[in-house]
Design a protein around this nucleic acid. Sequence first.
DNA 1: TATTGTTATACTCTATAACTATA
DNA 2: TATAGTTATAGAGTATAACAATA
Lengths: 161, 161
Amino acid sequence: MEYDVDMTGDVTSNPLASRLGYLLKHAHLQLMEASSHALAPFEIDGRELAVLAVLATEVPLSQLEAARRLGVDRTTMVALIDALEGKGHVERRRSAQDRRKNTVRLTPAGQDCLHRAERAREQTERQFLAALPDADAACLVRSLQALVVTPKISGDEQASA
Amino acid sequence: MEYDVDMTGDVTSNPLASRLGYLLKHAHLQLMEASSHALAPFEIDGRELAVLAVLATEVPLSQLEAARRLGVDRTTMVALIDALEGKGHVERRRSAQDRRKNTVRLTPAGQDCLHRAERAREQTERQFLAALPDADAACLVRSLQALVVTPKISGDEQASA
DNA sequence: TATTGTTATACTCTATAACTATA
DNA sequence: TATAGTTATAGAGTATAACAATA
């Protein structure tokens, strides 16, 4: 965990307060700090919880499909699934349709963990945003969604898509 | 650099779009990607630019003071200053007042790099936020500042402060 | 004794390259 | 030939522990 930042003094005089990269990074660090406490009872971290959430689909996903949805490399997904399988939250099965693929399913224990940990996560996020007026908190989340989720349209990609 | 995320489908059906940690992390990653291109001509990265900005004070800072303001460990600051000194952007001098301390100053080349790279950074951030309505972009920055910069007041700390 | 800078070291997260099995 | 999972490995970024110089 990083040092707390000395933010003595007002925002306008602070050369970091106006840096979007700095703000995003440290907002994330602060939220992770809070999350680590909230998720400790479930013995998973925020990334593993996100994996469980991604895997909680109607049709089970392959490791590669899960990796793409989460935005990580397939080699990273191996270790994530290893850890979750070791905790009994997911299980791998060889796909009958394509024997190169593992279908990854939540176990009942994994579903239970997901639901309970998700409630803890939601509460942590509400507390994290509680310092903001409701309208600002909603605007923050909506804006981040627009920035992250919106596909970037470049000329080339648009032409070939 | 991480894989691009498959964000096909609408926001509400995406189990990641509602996760604040995910949104902050990937917003940061996307901005870093853009910054790395914008700062490439200056041969520094966003963290080094932040160090230069922190060091551009009236009174020169010690390494430890700079580390605190930036929110990194003093051991991390050693390597950051090493790199910037190697590029000729800063210079260390032993403090006459306290010979344990290095005062770190921007060189003229460092000041020039700072000013030009800051303009590139600001433009990159404007482009990054251009997908949002002006009011939302302003709200996003203001909200992040409030979350990151505002000191957390707990009962104990308040009592002892 | 405490602080500052430094070094050595280790840990986390991530990706790239190469291998195996399968398509 | 290409794809999916795996392993080995390496790099970036970070922290902790221990040391020397100085206060």
